[in-house]
């Protein structure tokens, strides 16, 4: 019993330590904002990697997310609710929940883990120390561009994701469920709420910034050579995914 409690206590301490380190890193990288304004190329490079290079995967996931949500909503509507409302229901679910969370999870897998691996490798091969000895702050040079690109690019990805998800949903509704384009999009338009869109964008901003922050924080504190880098990569993905789901719950309470 005592061992279980001790193990639980240790886990809580580890999580608190990770959260504390991430908070300090966020504070320091925010103080590097002025530096980033002088070095826009650093941001542009990360925005390309996090935004543009994630786009193909995000788009594929989005099309199928829209398609499956249309199919499943129709299954639940059958005999209870008219298919005239299918577009509205799917659209709201996509804007509020599915697109932000799934885009966030895709980015957590692709970007959060790769940031941790990249910075972790730089840490164990003394490249981060080398930056410090050149009087260059690694938080400003490495973390600030990644975190800023994370919170700015995920909302952009969300816009593309939402569009493609709607098209996927419509394709299934039209070709497999017999819902006309006019019925589907009229329903989407009629119940469209800007609040849903803004809420989704706020979620994407938090998920993107959080994922990049967690990747940077874990990467900076990597130890132990190749094994350490591997563990850091896994930890970054697990923590980012957990963060997205927990933050989604908390934000949903505040936003709706």
């Amino acid at each position: 019993m005592m061992e279980t409690l001790a193990g639980f206590g240790r886990s809580v301490l580890v999580i608190l330590e990770e959260a504390g380190s991430a908070a300090i890193l966020l504070y320091r990288s925010m103080r590097g904002g002025a530096y980033l304004l002088r070095r826009p190329a650093l941001y542009a490079d990360q925005a390309f990697q996090i935004g543009v290079q994630s786009l193909p995967l995000v788009l594929v996931v989005s099309v199928f997310t829209g398609a499956v949500s249309s199919w499943q909503a129709a299954y639940q509507f059958r005999g209870i609710i008219s298919m005239d409302f299918l577009g509205a229901a799917v659209s709201a679910a996509l804007f509020i929940e599915l697109s932000p969370v799934l885009t966030g999870l895709v980015v957590a897998g692709r970007v959060g883990a790769s940031i941790a691996a990249e910075l972790g490798t730089m840490r164990v091969t003394e490249q981060i120390d080398a930056l410090e000895t050149l009087a260059i702050d690694p938080v400003h040079y490495l973390a600030a561009p990644r975190i800023t690109a994370g919170w700015t690019m995920l909302p952009v990805l969300l816009v593309f994701s939402s569009l493609l998800a709607h098209l996927g949903a419509f394709a299934v509704a039209n070709t497999m469920l017999g819902v006309s384009a006019d019925t589907f999009f009229s329903s989407v338009q009629k119940y469209f709420s800007m609040r849903n869109v803004v809420s989704g964008l706020i979620k994407a901003l938090v998920f993107g910034g959080g994922t990049a922050l967690i990747g940077c924080s874990i990467g900076f504190r990597t130890m132990g050579g190749a094994v350490g880098v591997g563990e850091a990569t896994i930890r970054a993905f697990v923590y980012s995914s957990a963060f997205i789901l927990i933050a989604d719950y908390i934000l949903s309470i505040f936003l709706f």
Binding site: M122, T125, E126, Q127, D129, A130, L131, E132, T133, L134, A135, I136, D137
Partner: peptide
Amino acid sequence: FRARRKFGMLFQSAALFDSMTVGENISLA
């Protein structure tokens, strides 16, 4: 960071930035 500008350091592994060319490594500072 200001005080470190008086220093240069050569690491055991050289610690070159592996994503940069030699020229970019040397010119970064």
